[in-house]
Design a protein around this nucleic acid. Structure first.
Length: 268
DNA sequence: AGTATCCTGGAA
DNA sequence: TTCCAGGATACT
């Protein structure tokens, strides 16, 4: 579920809650979600919590890190007081000031222990962070290149741009007035400029509202509260409703196996 | 460039 | 019962 703004929200929360704390114990309830030997990190101190693309990185004192991907339904819940694991709890990380519950209904997400080298290799695969200088219109023109892939599909490609998922891809394309099916090699310079701005705008909005807890509300912040960006969706899951700009009915299509929402009139 | 697959659960 | 889901990857 979580995309850049959701993971960023979790990162900021956890940084305050668990930085400088020590790992006391790790209880694994589903081996697939934590395939490594927890003994490698028990006793380690947490330096900081970082984010790259949709991954969370809990940096540890000995150059190791916990590398976490929440995939579609992963949650990290922080509890100061003792709490019984939920049905979906797969891993419990006990610190000296509370417990971090890794809840993951669909069992797609995971936590891996990586050394500095392995971490560098993993992170090298991602494209630029949208909030970095590298994310420029010049860069976008270059990576779009001659490819005829639909723009919506390319936006979801983490090797091209890091952190955009289905919600923000749909929202950014509406804001930039670009049809999600448009081949990237057909985008004009003007469209690329609009898109670059629109991506930054919707991601900033997402962070401002603490992320999006969409229809099934699987995304929650570490204190179990919901984000509120879903109240500001322009097109995502709004098929059958009127476009907020021109009142045309929002359409839903399938692109690359993902639900895709757009205004047929505003986005040609 | 498409689509099958890993999983579970809620909605239609 | 079938379809759908904020992701990513391994295949045709």
């Amino acid at each position: 579920m979580p995309e850049l703004p959701e993971v960023e929200t979790i990162k900021r929360y956890l940084n305050k809650a668990i930085s400088e704390k020590r790992i006391v114990d790790i209880e694994i309830l589903s081996k697939k979600q934590f395939p490594d030997n927890p003994k490698e990190v028990i006793g380690e101190k947490i330096l900081s919590v970082e984010r790259r693309a949709k991954n969370l990185i809990i940096k540890l004192s000995d150059k190791k890190a916990l590398f976490i991907h929440l995939k579609l339904s992963g949650q990290l819940i922080w509890e100061r007081k003792t709490k019984i694991p939920a049905k979906s709890t797969r891993v419990v990380i006990s610190l000296n000031n509370g417990k971090l519950f890794f809840n993951e209904i669909r069992k797609l997400g995971w936590i891996k222990i990586l050394n500095q080298n392995q971490l560098d290799l993993e992170l090298a695969r991602f494209g630029p962070e949208p909030f970095s200088k590298d994310f420029s219109t010049e860069y976008l023109q270059k990576v779009f290149g001659k490819s005829a892939r639909p723009i919506k599909t390319v936006l979801l490609d983490q090797e091209k741009i890091a952190g955009i998922g289905n919600i923000y891809a749909n929202e950014a394309l509406f804001e930039a007035k670009i049809n999600p099916r448009k081949p990237v090699n057909k985008l004009t310079v003007r469209e690329i400029e609009r898109l670059q701005k629109a991506i930054l705008l919707v991601l900033k909005e997402g962070i401002k509202y603490g992320g999006a807890s969409a229809a099934d509300q699987l995304y929650v912040r570490p204190d179990s509260s919901h984000g509120s960006y879903q109240q500001h969706f322009r097109v995502y899951q709004k098929d059958g409703e009127k476009c907020q700009k021109c009142e045309t009915i929002i359409k839903r299509i399938n692109l690359g196996g993902r639900g895709t929402f757009f205004c047929p009139k505003c986005q040609r």
